[in-house]
Design a protein around this nucleic acid. Structure first.
Lengths: 257, 257
DNA sequence: CACAAATAGTTCGTTATGCGAACAAAATAC
DNA sequence: GTATTTTGTTCGCATAACGAACTATTTGTG
């Protein structure tokens, strides 16, 4: 496992390695033996063992003597980020109003690399086959919130994104060529909202608007998702969009100075 | 800042310190300078700087050249824990059913030390003055889910809890003496649910049931919260409790083997 | 049950990781 | 402009963390 190429005196390799150990646990590997962790992370068994025992000692993990698993204290790490978000506390009541008004799921996400990351979510029903919660990631290029966030990037950062993204079709509708994606992002920027129709998953339609800070920078996206069979694109534009725009503005207005 | 008392060859001090740096960010300190982080964590400035630069290098944090703040990648750490939870994916649709049925907020929590930690939440409206999300912590002794989880502890672990907990009154109704708490927990165990009436916060009433694994161990608690003025304790027992019990059983039944 | 294979626990010599005091540089406050 | 505070950087040093190699334990197989 590599860190920076050259010896970097300001880099704490043990911290980076330890965080990788935490990240190696997942839905598919909720609990692992010492050797499995070593294998997954590329660490030696002795090193993996020290990291795991340190996590156990600090109550981030536990062991039954053979298998290791993470403990809820790990959520504190993510919570440090969430509770530091300026919009964190004000967004949820506003999102609940959206859900009460439209009877559809509402989510808030930020851009992180090539992905969007959910930071708040008020679900009403399962509109997608995968479960989503705070911390979930989805590709930005084929989600309504993702396109909205891309549209709000400064040109240079957007160019970097286009250079790095790999457009992989998720449904027959997925916009998977660069020219079409750029047009779509530009359209999002112009019209101030994004409507995605079954690009991420068949049957899923969602609409998103930007949430801006006081300097008019796009800092998050807010969306409502529905089943395509239940709500037409026109209805989303005429009924859902005004509610979302209002909610985005209320969140923005509630941000600290 | 101290680690283990004796030199412990299996303890990675840099990992423990780095995790403390992450945890030091909060709602009150969303962004900090190098010196502030050093002061908050007890590290030297040079050490704090190396940890922060490592977090920046690994995209867990960012800096504007002076202040540091966390990035969404930190949520991946908590997400490792959440996605590894056996009940994670099945619980939310069931909780949404509860919310649709009762029109009240529904949450799922686990016990961690003296606290409960929220691992899933479907809010309907603001029943509490503080915002709650995945990762939020509340004291176990004066919450419905907390009492439920305490009731499900093996006797030895419960004894340890009683030894360590400090009962601090949150409202005039808070059960804050040990005898009364033990009686309340025992009552929760006997009746298989817990109803809390304005012990955590005035105006807040909530009812919780245990979620058990296939070995009948209590692994989480599920609750519904309401405003005391809107729903009587009797209504919670007659209308809410059957729905919650059913939901708890459905979550339990959906757990993997 | 015996044996082989796999995995975990431990040791310890080694080294490079991470340390922090001290200084320089930059930013901030007055 | 000066004083103060904060940040950036260096570098000698101590030891934290390393991993190879071994022992011990567990698991799987015939």
């Amino acid at each position: 496992m590599t860190g920076p190429q050259d010896t970097d005196k300001d880099y704490v390799q043990s911290l980076a390695r330890g965080l990788e150990v935490i990240r190696t646990f997942s839905r598919y590997k909720p609990r692992m033996t010492l050797s499995e962790v070593a294998q997954q992370t590329g660490l030696t068994r002795a090193a993996a063992r020290r990291f795991l025992l340190t996590l156990v000692r600090e109550n981030y993990a536990e062991t039954d003597g053979k298998h290791f698993s993470l403990r809820p204290k790990v959520l504190d790490l993510g919570f440090s980020y969430l509770s530091a978000l300026p919009m964190w506390e004000v967004a949820q009541p506003i999102m609940r109003d959206v859900v009460n008004s439209l009877q559809e799921s509402c989510s808030l996400a930020v851009l992180d690399g090539l992905d969007i990351v959910y930071v708040a979510r008020v679900p009403t029903e399962r509109v997608m086959t995968i479960g989503l919660a705070i911390g979930s990631r989805l590709p930005a290029f084929c989600t309504s919130m993702g396109r909205t966030l891309l549209a709000g990037l400064p040109p240079r950062e957007l160019a970097v994104y286009y250079d790095r993204v790999k457009l992989e079709r998720r449904t027959p509708q997925t916009v998977a060529n660069m020219v079409a994606l750029k047009d779509a992002v530009e359209a999002s920027r112009r019209q101030g909202y994004t409507l995605i129709d079954q690009e991420l998953e068949m049957g899923l339609r969602s609409i998103a608007v930007p949430v801006r800070n006081r300097r008019s920078e796009v800092i998050a996206a807010l969306n409502v998702g529905t089943q395509a069979g239940r709500t037409s694109a026109d209805t989303m534009k005429t009924r859902f969009l005004p509610v979302l725009i209002d909610a985005g503005e209320r969140i923005a207005a509630s941000l600290p100075h």
